[in-house]
Nucleic acid binder design. Sequence first.
DNA 1: AATTTAACTTTGTCTTGCAAAGCTATACTT
DNA 2: AAGTATAGCTTTGCAAGACAAAGTTAAATT
Lengths: 98, 98
Amino acid sequence: MFDLSKLDKTIHEKGRLGIMTLLATRPSWNFQDLKAELKLSDGNLVTHLRTLHQGGYVAITKEMLDRPQTSYALTKKGRKAFQGYLAVLEQIVKAARP
Amino acid sequence: MFDLSKLDKTIHEKGRLGIMTLLATRPSWNFQDLKAELKLSDGNLVTHLRTLHQGGYVAITKEMLDRPQTSYALTKKGRKAFQGYLAVLEQIVKAARP
DNA sequence: AATTTAACTTTGTCTTGCAAAGCTATACTT
DNA sequence: AAGTATAGCTTTGCAAGACAAAGTTAAATT
């Protein structure tokens, strides 16, 4: 019916779910845009991004333009993990609305 | 695009999400079946059910058959809240797979 | 009376989310 | 050169919550 054990805990947390969803919509997002879109504090956002990075789901690119700019993108592994996560969400939706 | 602030925290936790999904599939579930299906410990399951009950999402019915049997069902409020939650899940799926 | 089972509570541990404040480095202003 | 602003990151501290394990209560069976 649905398999909760496949519901990746690293992705499931609210803040990180938001990050992953945004990253899935574009090749890359910078720190400021993520922060504005998700309304997270600096520290909170950095921490979630680090968690995702340590899980191998997110790649980090640091540049120096006129301002420093850090950009984030899904890795191949991250994209795959997120697809698996979305598949569980769909199972849930289908189970709950037969 | 998607509105994480509408992602009900009471429902979003993994164990409770499982409970709510099961309750949505049938008029009622008893304790033992929930426990078997979700593979949660007694204490953990009771606590999640209490959380959902206190939030007004789940009704509890205690009967004495040959054994005591406690059954759980979605309330109207619970069903509505869960539908709202599912709507956010669908937003996420759509945003991530345009 | 003793045992079994359902359901619940208690206890303790451990993790985690989160905000606030502080830090560092660079660029801009005067 | 000195001061200010901004980006990104770390540290600190706290509070909440998940979870397991063990103990408790009540009813039914043996």
